[in-house]
């Protein structure tokens, strides 16, 4: 009895492991498919541009007021906490490095991707699932419109562009908020502040931040699309698809963040 239970347990774990591995392989081959199309000129036409334009509008422009408010609040809070703490322990010389290496390189992409994932990933996931249930994907197939080119590619590009641009915007907000905060509360002149930032900032950090944002942007759109297409013909499959998609999006965000923390210093050393 105990033996059969144990066997079942092991079998269960094995099944889950295989399933995860297969799912990961699927995701990777799907990513490859989309990446390959990214660089295929024939994939682009005015219809794709239209979708791309609309998607950037929904993902990056519509969210701007909320995004800027959140960015300003987070920046002021973090700059304040970091500055005050460094002052209290007498290590204010680390203000610049922390602002660049922690706030701009880590917090800006992470907070941006979280906001975009909350708003747009869920929307894209639901949209694709609804299209699947409504047989609209079938329509595209019938009219020989490539689903990857028309539906997925512009969304993925929009995701990458939006996350990268919004991260840059977040970084600018951090720099400006830091300037105002340190001027008011730490009696730091703008000249000193900029000198501190420039001393700590390296081009590699900024490139790493941009690449990380692009990877975030790619996955937080690719994963919901993939899960959206897994919906069946039933309406009830929509919430299930969205739930799976969003859980996987958050897992992907955490994995990318951790990987970036491991890989970036290694590449930095190599360079």
């Amino acid at each position: 009895m105990i033996y059969s239970d144990m066997l079942y347990f092991v079998e269960n774990i094995g099944g889950k492991g295989l399933q995860s591995a297969l799912s990961f392989k699927d995701a990777m081959s799907f990513s490859y498919l989309i990446l390959a199309r990214l660089f295929d000129r024939r994939a682009y036409n005015s219809a794709v541009s239209m979708v791309l334009l609309n998607q950037i509008y929904f993902t990056a422009v519509q969210i701007l007021p909320l995004f800027l408010t959140a960015a300003i609040c987070l920046s002021i809070a973090f700059v304040g906490i970091i500055g005050e703490y460094l002052l209290s322990i007498g290590l204010f010389s680390l203000f610049g490095p922390l602002l660049v290496n922690f706030m701009i390189a880590e917090i800006a992409p992470f907070a941006t991707v979280l906001l975009i994932a909350l708003r747009s990933s869920s929307a894209i996931n639901a949209e694709i699932a609804v299209m699947k249930v409504n047989k609209e994907l079938n329509t595209l197939e019938v009219f020989q419109i490539d689903i990857i080119n028309y539906l997925f590619l512009p969304r993925v590009i929009a995701g990458i562009v939006s996350v990268v641009l919004l991260t840059c915007l977040f970084a600018v907000v951090i720099v400006v908020c830091g300037l105002i905060y340190s001027g008011f509360f730490f009696n730091m002149s703008a000249r000193d502040y900029i000198a501190t930032l420039l001393e700590s900032a390296g081009f590699f950090d900024l490139i790493a931040m941009t690449v990380k944002s692009a990877v975030f942007g790619f996955f937080i759109v690719m994963i919901p699309i993939r899960h959206g297409t897994r919906a069946t013909d039933e309406l009830t499959s929509i919430p299930v698809a969205v739930r799976h998609g969003m859980v996987n999006v958050f897992i992907a965000i955490v994995i990318i963040e951790v990987l970036s923390l491991v890989v970036t210093p290694m590449i930095s050393k190599l360079i």
């Binding site: 950037i56 509008y57 990056a60 422009v61 701007l64 562009v161 641009l165 840059c168 915007l169 970084a171």
Partner: peptide
Amino acid sequence: KVGIFIIATVLLA
């Protein structure tokens, strides 16, 4: 709107 957003952000960066 999208054009203004992209140009402004890219210019800023």
